[in-house]
Lab assay of single mutants.
Amino acid sequence: MAAGGDHGSPDSYRSPLASRYASPEMCFVFSDRYKFRTWRQLWLWLAEAEQTLGLPITDEQIQEMKSNLENIDFKMAAEEEKRLRHDVMAHVHTFGHCCPKAAGIIHLGATSCYVGDNTDLIILRNALDLLLPKLARVISRLADFAKERASLPTLGFTHFQPAQLTTVGKRCCLWIQDLCMDLQNLKRVRDDLRFRGVKGTTGTQASFLQLFEGDDHKVEQLDKMVTEKAGFKRAFIITGQTYTRKVDIEVLSVLASLGASVHKICTDIRLLANLKEMEEPFEKQQIGSSAMPYKRNPMRSERCCSLARHLMTLVMDPLQTASVQWFERTLDDSANRRICLAEAFLTADTILNTLQNISEGLVVYPKVIERRIRQELPFMATENIIMAMVKAGGSRQDCHEKIRVLSQQAASVVKQEGGDNDLIERIQVDAYFSPIHSQLDHLLDPSSFTGRASQQVQRFLEEEVYPLLKPYESVMKVKAELCL
């Protein structure tokens, strides 16, 4: 049975990233139509530049190519590739079939990587351009969430054990800070992308030097003109047959890092959902379990974690691919890159769409948070109580021993009897502590235990987050809708 299948058929496997999760716009960027249309555009740009620099290419040939950029006979191309065992030459023939007058000058002087690699770089750039505003929107939604809850005390956790208090907004800023680093890295790697350009079979530009009869300047002009037509500021000066596969490492490393950030955020949300302090959106008709109707599973956060793990592992592909590119190139890269580049971007696209949807509907339960604080705060307040007693004339050592005994009794009630923490009640009825009984409410005010959390939130948002989001103001209103 021949390899390949009808990918629109229910009898043929289709990647869930495309069929179930990723956005239509990201799927289109990695589609065959987008790819092969870009090949034709690159052939047109090459012909236009070659004509401008004096090669015998007519206006009629150029116009014929322009008129057929979208006229792609995919069936013919597939048949040609089956016959020739070469995808680029299959599309040269297919393009030439609908451009008979231009057929002889299509791909003039070029090698397969002229269309293959340059198209990949265009796709990487455009895919990054799709991700950047999506990530900015996630940051914006979380920034709104953090600002609104900047002063809401909550129990902090280290080692997932109760620690000092923080605020809900401050905790959210930990998430935002990681995503801001990801946004900066995505922008950097996007701006650092260079075009492969017009380089020939081993990167020496020998074929173009021959076409222009040894004119170095025209060869350099050709490279520059096509690079500018493709919208790049610069091209690699040095290439082998391909652009260095280190570029793929750079791009997928940034995406993998984004995956790590999203995994951490969504894990926190899942843990908070278990504590009943916070939940992701839950639709009115949504079913959490087929057997347990009360369940409210954090399905979206779980999906993000599941896909983020996949995204983090994909960076190993370009690392290994770059390491086995012998001399000017081997074909070890080809099949692998067809999979890992598309999957990385479709996965990143999915987790950003999902995280935006989550961040637009996060639900906080202040009463649950308050109750958990009441359970733990008495123990945390013991040092403040000791200091207040010393100020009232008591002995630190005597007070410490009193607190120690009462704390152990209260802990026994919590752990052995399943009761509430009654340390404060014990202190309130103990005559030894009568000098500070009137101060206990103040000493137990949760806001006095959150330090500068709310001020940190305000400063972080104003100095770091809002300036970073400013270039994306025009796209901030787009909502994230999930079908599944």
Rank of each mutant, 00 (worst) to 15 (best):
275 L>F: 14
201 T>W: 04
313 T>N: 07
54 G>T: 08
232 F>M: 14
348 A>R: 08
77 A>C: 00
428 Q>H: 15
9 S>E: 13
301 S>Q: 13
307 L>F: 13
56 P>W: 02
223 D>G: 06
154 T>N: 02
244 T>W: 06
311 L>G: 07
178 D>I: 05
395 S>D: 12
441 D>R: 06
471 P>V: 06
158 T>V: 03
227 T>A: 11
13 Y>K: 11
331 L>H: 07
181 M>S: 07
309 R>E: 05
268 D>L: 07
150 A>H: 05
153 P>Q: 11
103 A>W: 06
304 C>F: 13
267 T>H: 14
118 N>R: 01
327 F>H: 01
123 I>N: 00
316 M>T: 07
305 C>R: 10
4 G>I: 12
247 V>S: 03
236 F>A: 02
353 N>I: 09
184 Q>Y: 11
247 V>D: 06
343 E>R: 10
335 A>Q: 00
345 F>S: 11
447 S>N: 05
404 R>K: 12
262 V>R: 06
430 D>T: 15
470 K>G: 07
173 C>D: 10
122 I>S: 07
42 L>T: 13
16 P>Q: 03
97 H>T: 02
294 Y>A: 12
78 A>V: 05
162 P>T: 07
365 Y>L: 08
312 M>L: 13
153 P>Y: 01
144 D>T: 14
247 V>K: 11
291 A>R: 02
74 F>N: 01
300 R>E: 00
412 S>K: 04
274 N>L: 06
124 L>I: 10
70 E>S: 13
129 D>R: 03
264 K>A: 11
73 D>V: 03
310 H>W: 11
254 V>P: 00
308 A>V: 09
469 L>W: 14
193 L>R: 06
379 F>C: 14
436 I>A: 05
121 L>S: 10
327 F>E: 04
453 A>M: 11
147 K>A: 08
12 S>G: 13
43 W>A: 06
218 K>Y: 13
305 C>G: 14
284 K>E: 08
409 Q>M: 03
314 L>A: 10
402 K>T: 15
151 S>R: 03
386 I>W: 14
84 L>G: 07
116 G>S: 09
243 Y>I: 14
364 V>K: 13
272 L>V: 12
33 R>T: 12
188 R>D: 01
104 G>I: 10
404 R>S: 05
68 N>C: 08
58 T>D: 14
410 A>S: 14
222 L>V: 04
265 I>L: 12
